[in-house]
Nucleic acid binder design. Structure first.
Lengths: 128, 128
DNA sequence: TATTGTGTTATAGATAATATATAACAGATA
DNA sequence: TATCTGTTATATATTATCTATAACACAATA
């Protein structure tokens, strides 16, 4: 299965879909040119409305991760993703600021965070 | 001013308040025993309803960052924060997973992320 | 003792985001 | 011609967020 949805999560379903596709690209299980299921197919597979899938696809398209060809299908096209890095770094910085400030108050050493990131890089980006 | 609210941000106001207090604790501008403004005072200062401030305070209390004394006031009490580290590390791990997977697809080297974290630790936790 | 200032509870309402349901459309493909 | 795409439109339900107003109980204070 391409994706698994946690219906009890606070994370919106369309964001879970979006993040799942991004993770697939990172891990190499989704490569340039690979087709994604149609909005109806994926929707029925994971028990979700086609509009919810469409919302995720539209977002992925706007972020440069996929290409949507009307009446044809949807395909991985991560070549565009390497570009819009500026906004990613900006939002990441804000997110990390909250994370680190909380880590400091909870007396979590920076080495712990560094280790978590290295582990994730090894797991997700180990093939690059 | 203790806090500045961005009313155009996607981040809910009560979370901005919460994160601001946590950052204050991390930076040392808020220390154990320090009083926080009353829900009405802070609300009028930043132009927000008292219930929104109360929601942030309740959250901070549940996370162990502050102590609310009915009819008395609200005070920093970060001693409890060092405990509930388990849940923090869990949610942080999920957040970092999404972040790293996107970083990999955007070909952002891990050194960039490490550097951002070190800078934030130096800025926020430099006094510890 | 009366007033003021706490957090708290209750009720109500507005707005936006999320998700579903149903139907129909236009165009590529088989 | 029939099927499969993404797309558009409309409607509805639910939840989260935020505001508004009022009142309450209790501690501190004048």
């Amino acid at each position: 299965m391409l994706l698994t949805i946690d219906f009890d999560s606070e994370e919106p379903i369309y964001m879970q879909i979006r993040n799942g596709v991004v993770a697939g690209i990172a891990m190499g299980s989704l490569r340039d040119g690979d087709p994604l299921p149609s909005v109806r197919t994926l929707g029925s597979e994971i028990g979700v409305n086609l509009h919810t899938v469409n919302k995720a696809y539209k977002l992925l398209q706007s972020e440069g991760f996929i290409e949507i060809r009307r009446n044809r299908g949807t395909f991985i096209h991560a070549g565009n993703a390497a570009k819009n890095t500026a906004q990613f770094l900006e939002t990441t910085g804000e997110s990390l600021r909250n994370m680190v400030s909380e880590a400091v108050t909870r007396e979590v050493d920076r080495a712990v965070i560094h280790k978590m990131i290295d582990n994730l890089y090894n797991e997700l980006g180990g093939n690059t």
